[in-house]
């Protein structure tokens, strides 16, 4: 039992009085910690750029990414085509920009679906009856014992390559890790006094799960999700490169890399131009995820604020 002095607010009343919502203050100081970390700030800039490209692709892209112009194939970078053109004369910059859109939509859809699935299953396992927990944990363990790439190849063989296949594989493979994290969080949190207090007041299980456990367990999941986005971007590019992912002619960095590789002799710039955004965006997400993890660590926030 901490003494009175230890329970007392860390900051003096000077600041405490003006606080209306602790959540907002925490959020603001977390952002400050994130920005003070150079890697975190760089990550944020890269991710914002990448997301901006994806969202505003139709306005940013100088050309239609699918428009053929065979007369002007394998153009090196020029004023008309800042990133040059590919083997079919399509504008590479436009394809890269639309490729960001493809990568982001696949990554966010699959990570988002997996996150929601993991959240629901993890909370059920952590707060539901023991037998159900047992069954769910068994399923999580069996699924996560399969390597992602093996499962991907198996599913592609059965239902064929494509965006949906990719999303299905990522969701299936990622749910166990997310669910296990949420389950552990939920199990720990369910024992805490304020949850027991809710039960003692007569709150229903559903109310406790949704109003009290949910907001307190999602934090770490969000960090994990943001760190998994670059993995999915890489996976999408990798499978598309192998012609097992996004079907051409849809612009995808993996497809562009493949095209660049096959025409390495005639247009060496293509590989570089498709590789660079891939490297930068995955690095950006990784830095941002690590920065977020540190920034959301309450100890660091307190020390820095």
């Amino acid at each position: 039992m901490p003494s009175d002095a230890e329970i007392a607010p860390a900051e003096p009343a000077r600041q405490g009085r003006e606080r209306r919502a602790a959540g907002r203050v925490l959020h603001r100081s977390s952002l400050r910690v994130l920005l003070r970390d150079p890697m975190g700030a760089l990550g944020l800039i890269l991710v914002v750029t990448f997301v901006g490209m994806a969202v505003f692709a139709p306005w940013l892209a100088p050309y239609d990414p699918l428009k053929l112009d065979v007369m002007n194939k394998f153009q090196p970078p020029s004023w008309a085509h800042p990133a040059g053109t590919d083997q079919l004369g399509r504008d590479l910059l436009s394809r890269i920009i639309y490729g960001a859109r493809t990568a982001l939509s696949i990554a966010l859809t699959s990570v988002g679906l997996a996150g929601i699935g993991g959240l629901i299953l993890g909370m059920i396992a952590g707060y539901g009856p023991r037998w159900l927990d047992g069954i769910l944990v068994l399923i999580f363990d069996s699924v996560s014992s399969l390597p992602m790439i093996m499962l991907a190849l198996a599913v592609i063989t059965i239902i064929g390559p494509g965006t949906d296949t990719l999303i299905l594989v990522v969701v299936t493979v990622s749910i166990p890790a997310y669910a296990r994290l949420i389950r552990a969080q939920t199990l720990g949190m369910a024992q805490s006094d304020f949850i027991v207090a809710e039960r003692a007041m007569g709150a229903s299980g559903a109310r406790i799960l949704i109003r009290h456990l949910l907001p307190n367990v999602v934090g770490p999941l969000v960090i994990l999700l943001s760190m998994d986005v670059p993995i999915v971007i890489m996976l999408e590019a990798g499978l598309s490169y192998l012609n097992l992912g996004v079907r051409p002619p849809t612009p995808s960095w993996g497809n562009i890399l493949y095209d660049g590789y096959t025409s390495l002799r005639s247009a060496p710039h293509m590989v570089l131009i498709a590789g660079l955004p891939l490297v930068l965006s995955t690095l950006g997400f990784t830095f941002l995820g690590e920065g977020l993890r540190d920034a959301l660590d309450p100890k660091l926030v307190k020390g820095g604020a």
Binding site: M1, D193, F194, R199, H212, P215, N216
Partner: peptide, 21 residues
């Protein structure tokens, strides 16, 4: 549910029994 409606529990650690949010 009835006894929880008609009684109240005060916790040993009062601060921890309040939801942080």
């Amino acid at each position: 549910r009835a006894i929880r409606r008609r009684s109240a529990l005060m916790f040993q650690d009062a601060a921890a029994s309040l939801s942080p949010r």
